[in-house]
Structure formats: structure tokens, C-alpha cells
Design a binder for these strands. Structure first.
Lengths: 168, 168
DNA sequence: TTCGTTTGCTTCGCTTATCTAACTAACTCT
DNA sequence: AGAGTTAGTTAGATAAGCGAAGCAAACGAA
């Protein structure tokens, strides 16, 4: 197994890069279309992904892999745009809950998940076994990359894909 | 085939996100370690990936999916750090060639590709058929995502992986 | 209960990335 | 030669990100 075809590595890296780039690019376009920046959209999506539609700055920072200071500034902008609101926690008054406003929920409806669009449409067309295969591969790659970095918190969009091909 | 398990889509999206996030995070760390920012590092890598170790701002902008203005500013910083140099083109004097300096090449050696680090090491451990499987899956996903967006320019690092498991 | 410590968040000052619009110089085409 | 196109930069904004410092609430001994 150590006598591997080197081309394989290249090929997989190239493919990975294409995926990365396509997604990044797409994320930017999407956010722009929704009148938000990519980071802002991400925050919104994380919050929307929570069962109670709420998240503390700390949690956001962790899931996004940035500092709290950064989250504060992004949330400031979201507040200014009226898509979220800060609600001091009842139980622990050091904490703040960032919650989605109605406007915010609407904004999210407009701008669905970046990965979706192009990708999901194709994905659902595949045969069952192919999907299974793809998922397995992706998960494998993912675990190769974030090995030690725990969490891997979902962060999917709103009503996102819970109906896959059929919804919306 | 249209009666697909919806969870599959979710799972694949989650995995994709993990890959994305792991890479982004890693890119930041790496760049920081090399005293460069992620964008700067990317420019360096693209240039290094060219056979002649040179690229015009226009080409860089296209490959990175940003505007030329952005490239200008990033290149400015790279020049300030002495890792690249601007060389007016001989053939078309509107064009500028951004070339790697010796220092730049050295810097790249220090800060290898983000995807590599974490991923390649694991990849080469896999059995041959598994590698083949992964490559196929990744390429499939990639093509589902960037459908019309052509290029998919390699952009591999310096001596990158041309020896895969064996080098360095 | 009352300090000292930890924790959650914000503020401040700074750097970088990114965009659009405007500008300059150099090529191209007719 | 003059019009239009192309490559790059400049200028001026906004946004993301960081670290350090600050502040208030909560916690944990004593």
C-alpha cells in the first residue's frame, strides 16, 4: 500500500480544490444575493440550525472557528440589519442569546444553503448506491481532515433539505 | 431512484462542511505560521504552481475568483515582504509578471499546502482501491458543483506531492 | 458572606481582504 | 492615426479577523 500511484494524490487534491473553490465562490455569490456577507450568512445559518433558533456568541465563535470578538462585530451588523436580536439570558446574565427575527427568517428563506443549489439537485438524481458511496467517501475525507478537531457541528440551513428533492 | 433517503443529502452536506471548515481553519493557522495571510499564501501557491513560476495579476484574479484590484493589494504586500517581484512583461508592456523570489520559494517550503498536511498523509495510507474510490467520488462531487465553471486549474504547491508518500 | 478567580461578552485599535469606480498606459483594429 | 479594448493601479469603502483590555456576573473557597 505504500507503493501508491502518486497521480492519485494529485487528482484527489485537485478535485478537493475544485470543491473548495466552487463552494467558496458560491457562498460569496449567495450572500451577496441576500444582501449579506458570507460571514453574516453563516451566523444566520448556524442560529437557524439550532432547535430553539438561538445561540450564544461563545457557541457561534466555537462553531465558526473564530474569536468572540469577531462574532460580536458580525452580530452587530446583523442587528443593524434587523435580522437578529440580542436577548440577555434569564438563567445566566453574563450570557446573551442571539435570536433570529422574523425578518431574519425570511432572509434565510431567500438565500438557501450555498452547497445546495447546484450540488443537491445533482445529488438527488443519483442512484441509491451511488449516494451511499459518495457519502461514505466524503465522510472519510472529512475525518481525515479534522481528525483531532472535534465538534464537526452540523450547521445546516433552515428547512434546508429535509425533504431533499421533494421540498419547495 | 427518486425515492431516495433524504438523510443522505444531509450527511453529505455535513461532511462537505467539515472539509471546508477544516481546510479554512487550517489555512489560517498555516498562513499565520508562515507570517503570511491566507490570501497571500494562496497567491504564492498559484504562482509556484505555474511551470515558469510566474503569473500575471489578471490570471491570479481569475484563478482566485476575485477582482484585479484585490490581487494588486495582495501582491503589494507580498512585494513588501520580499517574497515576490513585479517584472514588466517584455512582450506586452501592459502586463506585469509576478515572480517568486528566492525568499518566496523558501517561504513556501515552510508553509506547505493546507490540504496536504492533514489530508495527504492519511490518503497515502489507504489501500489502492480505496484511493481510487475516493478520487472517483471527489471528482464526481467536484463536477456536480462547478458544472459550468471550467478551468479547475490545478494549483499545486511547489515540490508538492510529486513523490507522494516518499518525499520529504 | 466576602474575596479572588473564572467566564461571557464587548470595546478598542489595527491589519487584511474585498469591492466598485475612476484613471493611465499600452495594445488592436480599421 | 484615432477609437476602442485590455492590463494594471489607485482611491475610497466596508467587512472580517485578531489580541488585549475592560466589565459584569457567577462561582468557589475561607
Amino acid at each position: 500500500m505504500s507503493e501508491t500511484n502518486p497521480d492519485r494524490v494529485d487528482e484527489s487534491l485537485i478535485a478537493l480544490r475544485r470543491i473548495l473553490r466552487a463552494t467558496e465562490q458560491y457562498e460569496r455569490d449567495l450572500a451577496a444575493a441576500a444582501g449579506l456577507s458570507p460571514a453574516q450568512l453563516r451566523v444566520l445559518q448556524i442560529i437557524a440550525g439550532k432547535p430553539d433558533m438561538t445561540a450564544t456568541p461563545k457557541a457561534l465563535a466555537q462553531q465558526m472557528g473564530v474569536t468572540q470578538a469577531t462574532v460580536t462585530s458580525v452580530v452587530d451588523k446583523l442587528v443593524a440589519r434587523g435580522v437578529v436580536r440580542r436577548m440577555p439570558s434569564e438563567t445566566d446574565r453574563r450570557q446573551t442569546n442571539v435570536i433570529l427575527t422574523v425578518t431574519g427568517r425570511a432572509a434565510l428563506e431567500e438565500a438557501p444553503d450555498a452547497l445546495q443549489q447546484r450540488y443537491v439537485r445533482e445529488f438527488v438524481k443519483l442512484a441509491d448506491w451511488e449516494q451511499a458511496q459518495l457519502v461514505a467517501s466524503l465522510e472519510r475525507v472529512a475525518s481525515m481532515m479534522d481528525a483531532h478537531k472535534m465538534d464537526a457541528s452540523p450547521v445546516l440551513t433552515v428547512g434546508a433539505i429535509d425533504g431533499a428533492g421533494k421540498r419547495k
